[in-house]
C-alpha cells in the first residue's frame, strides 16, 4: 500500500465518501475506486472498476478473479447515518440506541431549549431547520431520516428534502389521520404519490410499542429491516429476464 493511498482513505472517511481499494495480490498494484472517479495503477481497468462499484453497493469486501489475476476489493463505506428531526422524548431513547447499533447519529431541531447536548450526550446536535441542516450535511444512500416533532412546520420541510434525495429510509411519526393530511400538504410542494409512498408512516414496526423507548425499538427494528433487505437485494445474483 502506498502512503498516498492511506492518506486518501483517511480523507474519504472524513468526507463520508465511499471508496474501494482494489489491490492485485501478485504485485500489490492498486486502484482507489470512488463512485465517480478512479485513481492509481489499476484505475484504467474497466472490469476492476466495475467490480469495485458492485462491492461498494453491497458494502462487502471480497477477493475476485479478473482476467486471471486475483484482486482484493477492500470496501470503505461510511457508517450508516441516522438523522433524527425533533429533539423530543422519543429521540432521547432513539439516539443512544442507534449509537449502540453503530449508526452515526445527528439530532436536528431549531428550538434551542430542545436541541441541547445535555439532553443528547455523545451525539451530534444541530440547532437549525432540518432542510438547511440537510443541505449542510448532504443526504446520501447510507442515511436514514426520521421525523418526530408532530409539527408540520418542522417535519414537512425535512420530509420534502429527504424524499427528494436517495436516503435509504424515511420515517414519520404520527397517526394514519395525521399521515393523510401530511400527504395533502406535501403534494402541494411537488411530492408525488410515488415519492410519498417511501415514507414509513405511522413510523416503526407494529409491535404494540407505547413508551418512548419501545417506539425507538420499533423504529430501529424497521430501519434494520429496510437496510438488510436492500443489501440482500443488491447482493443477490442478477437473473437475466427470460
Amino acid at each position: 500500500m502506498k502512503a498516498e493511498t492511506l492518506a486518501a482513505l483517511q480523507d474519504a472517511r472524513a468526507k463520508r465518501r465511499a471508496v474501494a481499494l482494489a489491490t492485485r495480490l501478485s504485485d500489490a498494484a492498486e486502484a482507489l475506486v470512488y463512485r465517480d472517479d478512479a485513481k492509481g495503477e489499476l484505475a484504467g481497468d474497466a472490469a476492476i472498476v466495475s467490480a469495485a462499484h458492485r462491492a461498494m453497493d453491497i458494502g462487502k469486501s471480497e477477493t475476485v478473479d479478473i482476467g486471471g489475476a486475483k484482486i482484493f476489493l477492500n470496501v470503505y463505506v461510511p457508517p450508516p447515518r441516522l438523522i433524527i428531526v425533533g429533539a423530543v422524548h422519543i429521540a432521547q431513547s432513539l439516539a443512544p440506541m442507534a449509537t449502540m447499533l453503530e449508526f452515526d447519529v445527528t439530532v436536528v431541531d431549531p428550538r434551542g431549549a430542545w436541541a441541547t447536548t445535555q439532553r443528547f450526550p455523545g451525539v451530534k446536535v444541530i440547532k437549525d431547520w432540518a432542510d438547511e441542516a440537510f443541505q449542510e450535511m448532504g443526504l446520501d444512500v447510507s442515511t436514514a431520516v426520521v421525523t418526530l416533532t408532530h409539527d408540520p412546520k418542522l417535519d414537512d420541510p425535512a420530509l420534502e428534502s429527504a424524499l427528494k434525495s436517495d436516503v435509504f429510509y424515511v420515517g414519520a411519526l404520527g397517526s394514519k389521520r395525521t399521515h393523510a393530511k401530511r400527504k395533502e400538504r406535501l403534494s402541494e410542494v411537488g411530492i408525488t404519490d410515488e415519492m410519498f409512498a417511501r415514507i414509513h408512516g405511522p413510523v416503526g414496526l407494529n409491535i404494540g410499542a407505547k413508551s418512548p423507548a419501545e417506539i425507538a425499538v420499533s423504529i430501529l427494528g424497521q430501519i434494520i429491516e429496510v437496510r438488510a433487505r436492500r443489501l440482500e437485494a443488491l447482493s443477490a445474483p442478477k437473473v437475466a429476464a427470460a
Partner: peptide, 24 residues
C-alpha cells in the same frame, strides 16, 4: 469498517514517525 480505519490511522502515525510499516 471503523476498526479498519483506526488501524490505518495508527499505521499513518507510524509512517509519519519514519518507521517501517506493513499492513496485513
Amino acid at each position: 469498517m471503523s476498526d479498519a480505519l483506526e488501524v490505518l490511522d495508527q499505521v499513518g502515525r507510524w509512517k509519519a514517525d519514519g518507521k517501517g510499516v506493513a499492513v496485513a
